[in-house]
Design a protein around this nucleic acid. Sequence first.
DNA 1: CTCGAACGCGCG
DNA 2: GTACGAGCGTTCGAG
Length: 863
Amino acid sequence: MKLGGLFGNMPQKTLAKALPAKPADSSQLLPLPGAALARAIAPKKRPGDFGVVWPTIPQQQVKDYKAILTQAELEAYADRCEALGLCSFDWETAASKAAREAFAAYKAEMETKIANLDGFPMDEKDAKERAALKKEYEAQLTTTREAYLMTPLDPHQSEVCTVSLAAAPHESRVVPIDHKAGRIFEPTLSREAARKLVMDTLDRRIFRNRKVVKIAVNLSFETKFAAKYGKYILLPVADPLVMWVRCLQVADPKRLNDLKKPATGWGLKPATKAVFGVNMGEFKELLAKYGVDFFDEIAADSGDGLVYSAEDADYGLQHYLYWKQIAIQIKDDRQGTNYDTWLHEIEMPFSRVIGLMEYNGMGWDNHLAQMKREEAWSIQTEAANEINQLSKEAVGMEISLGKTGKTNSVKYVLFNMMNLPKGKPTDKGGISLDEEALIDIKFMLENNLEDLTEEKLLSVKLPEGWESYLKDSPEWYELGKDQRAAVELRNRPPHPFKDVGLRMLELMGRYQKMNTLLSSHVDGREKWQNPVTGKIHASYTPWTDTSRLNSMKPNGQNVPRLENDELGVRNFYVAGPGKILFFIDFSGFELRILAWKSGDKVMIEIFCTGGDMHRKTGAAITNKPESEVTKQERTDAKPANFGMAYGGTEHALQKTIKTDYGQRKTLAECAVMVDGTKKAYPGVPVFQHEIAMQAREDGFVSTIYGYIRLLPDINSTNTYYRQSAGRQAANTPIQGTAADVMKKAQNEVYEETGRGTNLVFDATEKGMNPVDLAREFGEAPPILVHGKTDMEAQIHDEMIFEMDDDPDVVEAAWHWVQATMTKPPIEGFPVPIEAEASVGYAWGKKMSVEKWLEEKRAAQKGA
DNA sequence: CTCGAACGCGCG
DNA sequence: GTACGAGCGTTCGAG
């Protein structure tokens, strides 16, 4: 089997060919003639069963593990990789010289400090203080040492010391580039020169080689270190970890330890044990055996070090061959997609994008953050003081606000001492102080209500002269039940703590807002700042139910938008010197995909003619012609549109309108909005129903390029679970398709960056201009280039880059990225995909890219 | 004292 | 019990 030939160089072309514009008629799945015969040939599978035949486990053979010590040997093994079309590879990394020196200096300083405490104490108190201090220093040293031992995971604090390569199972070659023991690669060279020689060779022979599948377990890690040396790992690529996790999720989810974090317990070593029954060497044990901190302190040309390194490449390759046999069996026959294609063209290449974004990170302005932090502190202090003063005056009690302003102490004063009305309870029946509860409590105080059920009394019409009606008089009994309650409400004396309560609630909202900003978005981000780059390097994983990305440590996808953020955290994210940030986002992305997936004619028409979907929905809800829809009515329609995509209910819509738009609407009004929206786009509810029915047969739903989400609850006897799965069935093909399309675009950005970077590298080697070299090759000039147009972040429908502060660089990148994003996802996609770009020196200071280019060029001319 | 559940809030 | 997806900081009570 020649694997290299299976992959096209242009993924979107092969995908467009492979996928029909419309899902295939399910009757096509049945072999002719006759359904009865077909059932006899292919028995009907249970929902969620892919009928995977698990491959036999290959026998492990005597291993051919050797060190490569010369350039000639390295070239020869690259020949073998090329001939076989496979190259499994792995880095071993160790702390950089700078990281080692910094830690040694720190350690010496701390040890001196600790030793200085060992003199004779003056008295008992002094002895106690010294002991406490000693303990503290020792704890600090331990913490720092632990962080130091993790530096090999950070490409900014470490270097590749060893490379292992495998072109076939049971063999591996290890290149000890930089070791303090054993023989090393090309020993006459400096280690920097040796590393460059290896990287350049891998780049030339393997990374750019379209005939070789580049295989790495956890490819995002390998990608980061490649980027560190200016290298890009071009298609075809594979990440066996992604293969086995994705295959297990659909083919045998019971084997996973944690469905929400499916890679848990499924790293290379446990996976190799589980699949091949082989116990691989453990890294920590190996280092402990030799009493060293890092891998480069032991020999890798022979013995344990050689085997440890060699095994990774060997088993990585074996996993690839094994899981590929499973992936090709996982298919969505309705739309003709299969996991092998999705994995090779979308999901595994995307591991590189994750690595690249994690490597690049985003710049952070400590000075501005500190100024705003101090501002927030004083706002909080002021609010806390006033709250306490009000509380003392009202009920003679101080409140301990904690950091959140929502402690039991707060609840005690508000609800036990002041007897304020309560909002909705929490899930577990407690007193809620969330945003909705605060809004409701304020509303009740303002309207003198005791609970929210009285809200409806405010709109009860009363006959003239009701003020004079006496309770139990004849007139009184002419009133309806609600009218009598309304009269009683209006005669009710005001709440004794109305004014003070309202003021306290307002102050608490402000105090809470500042707390969230400070804890989660200022301190909670800055603490992850990289000591070398000074940037925030958010992590990403693709392990979500819809195949979206998630982000953590810190979460780079929940930075507050400016309109919700008094401190302007987005302003702390800045471009480096000589750089500018470039933002590009899909517009109305998920609604466009919903238009495609549902085939709703009205939505398709709107997107094809540049119409305004929110206005259209506003017209449907208000029963007005579109031209008469007010700005407010259009705004009101937005949550109805988004809600529709989630299979939303009037309850949820009511809450969204209350908390996000500050308006109170009755359930009936919200039901009118939900209904009106569904009627305006009749294809959507039909699609939502049909896909749920389809999922009940199949047990899964899938995305445009073939990601599959199992929905085991879709046939549950529990109505709540079943309906919930039904909404997921309707939403996952939308949200997951958006994720697929974004991943595809980012994969293409990675490839193009590799192409441009390679052109620049080659031209430099030849002493040529890259544009001339490109012309010589018959290629476009470099557009995206490492170090000039770096992709830093993804927020579901948006990419963020840091680019050279140069209008030519930005303009070329803009046009290329925008064209890439707006290509139809598949042939015959019924609506245009649009993407909008902007630039700014800080995230919070975006301006239109057109305007910036104009101004920049005018300034250049002037200068 | 540690740990996890509950709560609440930021994003698309 | 009433919307899809996700992470994280704080509080509080259980062990």
